[in-house]
Design a protein around this nucleic acid. Structure first.
Lengths: 232, 232
DNA sequence: CGATTGCCGACTGTCGACAGTTTGCCAGGT
DNA sequence: ACCTGGCAAACTGTCGACAGTCGGCAATCG
């Protein structure tokens, strides 16, 4: 009876100030609108966003747990600055999570999940062809997220989501380069073929290669970006 | 020159109210002093701890990011209640992280780290012999933490630390059973021998077995505990 | 008698304010 | 020229208070 009125409705998103602030800050950081290592003034942000300090602080805590900010007691919050070592760490952990997902899916991937992943690759290629770097990155992350979600372990997924924020942070550091849609498609179809084969060893090999490429891409980008900065 | 004065010193722990509250709450939750699913009253906690609500809220956010609490908008914070599925997820993620660590250490474990791990097993056995269940658990976790720390990836370690809190949460659910110190020693020496052999496959096998045993131990404990509750 | 509606208490979300600390700066001494 | 000490501004940590919201209970209506 009460069901009759709940069709086609979706719970309205509570206008939670904390979440809004967190989204704003996340977007600003990922867009590179802050210098890495920059100190965030609570009062400054509060004034800029037209809210009090309490939501700012809670949002900052949230971003700290996601690795986008670091806090020093009595000093405040700072935008996370990544050095080469941390970059390696991030990709190493990514490898850890995605390997696990791939090996799990090797012998437990539903046909439907595989189809959905195929569709997502198409979306990704489309985004790559559109020329929008940010869209390409989001759809790429969405593909990997979808893959990990297929495992059905929410904690694994949460780990990836946190990592994804840091990955975006890495990517903001690098000079933008266009990547060929065909290459991207091949790269991801390799993963899907490995999954379809059901061979764990092949899956592992495929994801190792895939993430190795991504890591080299980012590391090289950061090096170039840094060289550029020095030349400047 | 400034280096000469920083030896043997450790930063003074700021009497941060938030951290103190977080520690208090963590301890209380892990000790099982709250019913899983119980609602935490901010004002109640604030009064009980003699502080205002702001530090309580921030500490609660911290514990939420660690998976000890869950928050519902406009409703507040609740103690995390784990069902069987989440338990599986936790151990699956643990397997993911520790496999990665073991495989990494298989071909990159310093002799010193190995010695430290051996010493820790001794400490663990001592704790087991002492009969204190909580000490045994802490030393066991300390061993695994030490192993993961040896990889040198701080993000991996952070992932494990978060997971460790949830593992403690699992363990509070089970009825306490005494475990033989010798069995524990064997169990961990198996890991160390695998590491010393430098064979990745053997390492993987060893950690799979080890965590499988731990998972069965906890799952069985929870089932028994639940049966006990039903009988009661 | 069952379902619905309006009200009440308790609680969370948010705010402005105060106290203690950190930081940058300038004067003074070596 | 360098280091030291102290001062002032700005900031963070913490607090108490107010407004909006949620859950439960009783009164009302079918």
């Amino acid at each position: 009876m009460s069901e009759s009125q709940s069709e086609g409705f979706r719970a309205i998103r509570s206008p939670n100030l904390v979440d809004q602030v967190a989204d704003h800050l996340t977007e600003a950081i990922i867009a590179g609108r802050f210098i890495p290592g920059e100190r965030l003034s609570e009062v400054g942000l509060a004034r800029a966003l037209g809210v009090s300090r309490a939501p700012i602080r809670e949002a900052a805590r949230l971003l700290e747990s996601r690795g986008l900010l670091v806090s020093q007691p009595r000093r405040g919050f700072f935008v996370r600055a990544l050095d080469a070592g941390e970059l390696e760490d991030i990709f190493d952990l990514r490898l850890c999570l995605e390997r696990h997902a791939m090996e799990h899916l090797a012998h437990a991937c539903s046909a439907e999940a595989l189809r959905a992943l195929h569709r997502q690759v198409e979306v990704l290629c489309e985004a790559a062809a559109s020329g929008s770097e940010s869209r390409r990155i989001e759809e790429d992350l969405a593909f990997h997220r979808m893959m990990i979600a297929a495992v059905g372990n929410r904690r694994l997924l949460k780990g990836f989501d946190d990592l994804a924020h840091e990955l975006r942070l890495c990517i903001t550091l690098i000079t933008k380069t266009h990547e060929d849609p065909d290459t991207i498609a091949d790269c991801h179809h390799l993963l899907l073929d490995a999954l379809a084969s059901g061979d764990p060893a092949r899956c592992r090999e495929a994801i190792d290669y895939h993430i190795g490429v991504a890591r080299d891409y980012v590391v090289r980008g950061v090096v170039e970006s840094r060289a550029e900065t020095l030349a400047h």
